[in-house]
Amino acid sequence: MGRITLDKVTKSFGEVNVIPPLDLTINDGEFVVFVGPSGCGKSTLLRLIAGLEDVTSGQIRIDGEDATDMPPAKRGLAMVFQSYALYPHMSVRKNIAFPMKMAGMPQDEQNRRIEAAAKSLNLTDYLDRRPGQLSGGQRQRVAIGRAIVREPSAFLFDEPLSNLDAALRVNMRLEISELHNALKTTMIYVTHDQVEAMTMADKIVVLRAGNIEQVGSPLELYKTPRNEFVAGFIGSPKMNLIRGETAAQKGAATIGIRPEHLAASTEGGLWQGTVGVAEHLGSDTFLHVHDHGLGDEPLTVRVDGEMAVRHGDRIFLTPDESKLHRFDKQGLRI
C-alpha cells in the first residue's frame, strides 16, 4: 500500500517560505512526477515526504497514518538519490543488503532478495564489484536495487537520470517504467525534464515557486493547460504565445499555439514570416520563423522532415483553430 496525502503542508527555511500551504493526494500504485523549473521546491517536497526535512506546518499521511513526525526509516519509503548515494567502500552486494542488514533480516532471506533484485536489474555479474568500478547506468541500477529489496510502500526518485548521457537516459526511463508496471508500487519522481514527466507519469504535478500549478495526466496537461505557465512548460518545443492585436481578435489576452498545430506552406496562409534557424531532426524539422508581425519572439513550427526550406525563405503559417489555447490577463485559461 502506498497512499500518500499532504494536508496544508508548508516549509520555510528561516524567513524564506519555500512551500506555501499545499494539498496533494497520491493514490496507491500511481506513478506521480513532480516537474518544474529548478528552484521550484520539487526536491524539497520530495524530501518532506521522505522525512529528510521537517515540515513547518501541516500534515503528511501515509496510508492514512500520520507520518509528519515519523523518522525517515519508519515511513516505509525508499529513495533513489540524484548522486545515487551508493556506499563507495561496500561491494554492490553489500550496498543492496545494507537496508536489510539494518532491519535485521535473516541472512538467507537477504540473499534471496539480493539475487532476485540483481537478476531483474541485470546486476548479477557485478555483485562483487565496488560502485567505483561501475558505469553510471549500472550505479543507477544498484541504487534502484537497494530501494527494491526493502519492498517499500512507495519509491521516491530525486532526478535520478540527470547524471546519465542521453542514450542511457532513454533506456533507464524505459526500465523505470517497466519496473513500475511490474511492481505496481507507488512511485514519486522528481525531474525538471518535461519529456521524462510526459513519458513516464500517470499523473504530473507541475510546480512553480512551491505552488501546484496543475495536476493531471500527461495528455490533460498537454491538451488543456490551466494557465500560461503550464502551457509553456509542457510540450517540446515550447508552445508559441502570441499577445496583442492578434490575441485580442480571438477575445483573449494571450493565445497559444503549439509548433505541431501550425500548418506551414510556401504558397499562402494566414500569417507569414522569414525562416531563421531550421533544425533538421530527420523525421521533423523545427523552423524558427521571424518577422511575422505578431510579436518579438520567433514562432516555432514543426514541419515534415522532407519539406525543403532554408534560412531566409519566405513561409506562410496557418494555425489549427481547434487547437488554439486562449488565456486571459491573469494567464488563466479561457
Binding site: G51, P72, A78, H89, F98, R146
Partner: peptide, 26 residues
C-alpha cells in the same frame, strides 16, 4: 557526501550505525 548519510538514514541506519558503516570507512 551528505546524500550518503541521508540514504543510510532512509535505509534505517541509526546514528551509531551511520558512524560505523558510513563515516568511519570514509
Amino acid at each position: 557526501d551528505q546524500e550518503q548519510l541521508e540514504a543510510a538514514e532512509m535505509d534505517g541506519a541509526g546514528a551509531l550505525s551511520r558512524f560505523f558503516y558510513i563515516m568511519l570507512p570514509h
